[in-house]
Design a protein around this nucleic acid. Structure first.
Length: 446
RNA sequence: CGGGGUAUAGCGCAGCCUGGUAGCGCAUCUGCUUUGGGAGCAGAGGGUCGCAAGUUCGAAUCUUGCUGCCCCGACCA
């Protein structure tokens, strides 16, 4: 992408409403635009990041055997009356009426709808287990939205729903998502710690939140320090092997960890002092097993092996990609701006033409741009007629991991500069060497 | 939902107390000079001063009502 033809509304000043660093940087980098309290437009740069996060989530959901579909954002109130949640959900649910005065709602979650779909088509135990997911916008009318997309009213969520014949099967489904989540967060470069959680209005008796530690987090959390250095489940872990899944889950639930709602002061105090971690955390995922809470009232039943109807056991599994964008920035930034992980960056490489209009620098930039683009690398080529300083500042602000700096001085020696955003390291290399170096950074499919 | 703020150009702000028809910096546009870490000079464009009613010869400024937004708390897959 040529920056001169892109839409990247950078702000030099920080809008005063932005309190936390991720919100400030998302506004300054032209990623989002607030439209109303807790409601944001995603501008091109922000959308790129959101889509990259979604891609990782999809790969790991699919690997774990979940199947993607897409459900609507607007739902019928009648569906929610079946489960009894239309009355229970309260003012967080945005209720609307269509032209025929029919009661509708903007979905805060999709348990009822997925259960309706499931019960319509799935009749036999032979079709189980089944895990269906989608990535769709949700709306929860929070009393006080804040911190940009970290705590917004409209937000994107990946929500998966599992269906099993038995509680044992449901445990395996739960474990698969547990492992998939660990892998997903690890691939995003985040250390997420599973914590025993409150089940809230979703209900159920087995639930974990996945928390990443950050000073701007909204939850008080407590855990064993060793969690910070756990290695995530491997790519070739066998999701169909219940024992393998259970042992991974056991490994990640072996040490103390809890949010303040479930905190056990005595258990925590029993830890050695050097193992105690008391911090703030951001909830980036939440998984539940809730048995027949929805399948029972909504009559989601299948014929069992003995020919008798069996009410299915369900679980649901959420990740907030829009919140993850903010969480990633909270975990990856410095005074100059965002520092994206390679695979999440809106563009992996930035090319700064320090003298647009100069035949030699233009030619060198065009050549590098063309070759990287042809190799399938996302490149942002800053071909604007701007001063060098402005180009450096822009690339650092939007956090491009690799920056190729092309100017007349270097080209006189046949060299361009490669700068690594995260370390600040810079090196003068030939254009060919830079290309080889950049292509080598593209990690093979995990 | 309680408490506290705030609303003036795309962003950050001044002007309000003491009413006289709107200003600064950044950004944008033009020209010239510059050109390796957010350049300089000169000029230009851009605002129903959140909305409504009232007081007044005259309201960004005073009064009343409403609304948006932000912060603290409570709340929160």
């Amino acid at each position: 992408m040529r920056l001169s033809r892109y839409f990247l509304p950078i702000l030099r000043d920080t809008p005063k409403e932005a309190e936390i660093v991720s919100h400030r940087l998302m506004l300054r980098a032209g990623m989002i635009r607030q439209q109303s309290a807790g409601i944001y437009a995603w501008l091109p740069l922000g959308l790129r990041v959101l889509n990259k996060i979604n891609a990782v989530i999809r790969e790991e959901q699919n690997r774990a055997g979940a199947v993607e579909l897409l459900m609507p954002v607007i739902q019928s109130a009648d569906l929610w009356r079946e489960s009894g949640r239309y009355e229970d959900y309260g003012k967080e649910m945005l209720r609307i009426k269509d032209r025929h005065e029919r009661e509708m709602l903007f979905g805060p979650t999709n348990e009822e709808m997925i259960t309706e779909i499931f019960r319509t088509y799935v009749r036999s135990y032979k079709d189980l287990p089944l895990n269906l997911y989608h990535i769709q916008w949700k709306f929860r009318d929070e009393v006080r939205p804040r911190f940009g997309v970290m705590r917004s009213r409209e937000f994107l969520m990946k929500d998966a729903y599992s269906f099993d014949l038995t509680a044992e099967g449901a445990q395996h489904s739960y474990n698969k998502m547990f492992v998939a989540y660990l892998r997903t967060f690890a691939r995003l470069g985040l250390t997420a710690i599973p914590m025993v959680a409150d089940t809230g209005p979703i209900g159920g008796n087995l639930s974990h939140e996945f928390i990443i530690l950050a000073p701007t987090g909204e939850s008080d959390v407590f855990c064993h320090k060793d969690y910070l250095s756990f290695t995530p489940p491997a790519a070739d872990v066998n999701f169909d092997d219940p024992k393998a899944m259970q042992s991974e889950v056991d490994r990640f639930t072996s040490l103390y960890s809890a949010t303040s709602e479930k905190h056990d002061e005595a258990a925590y105090e029993a830890l050695p002092d050097e193992a105690k971690v008391s911090a703030r955390g951001i909830e980036v995922g939440h998984i539940f097993y809730f048995g027949t809470k929805y399948s029972e009232p909504m009559k989601a039943v299948v014929s069992g092996p003995e020919g008798k109807d069996v009410t299915v056991h369900m679980g649901s599994y959420g990740i907030g990609p829009s919140r993850l964008v903010a969480a990633l920035i909270e975990a990856n930034h410095d005074d100059n701006g965002i520092i994206w992980p390679d695979d999440i960056a809106p563009f992996r490489v930035g090319i700064a033409n320090l003298k647009s209009g100069d035949a030699a620098t233009d030619a060198a930039c065009e050549d590098i741009y063309a070759k990287l683009t042809k190799a399938g690398v996302d490149v942002l080529y800053d071909d604007r007629d701007e001063r060098a300083g402005a180009k450096f500042a822009t690339m650092d602000l939007i956090g491009l991991p690799y920056q190729v700096i092309v100017g007349p001085k270097g080209l006189a020696d046949g060299q361009v500069e490669l700068k690594i955003r995260r370390s600040g390291e810079r090196e003068m290399l030939s254009p060919e060497a830079v290309l080889n170096r950049l292509l080598a950074t593209i990690s093979p499919a995990i």
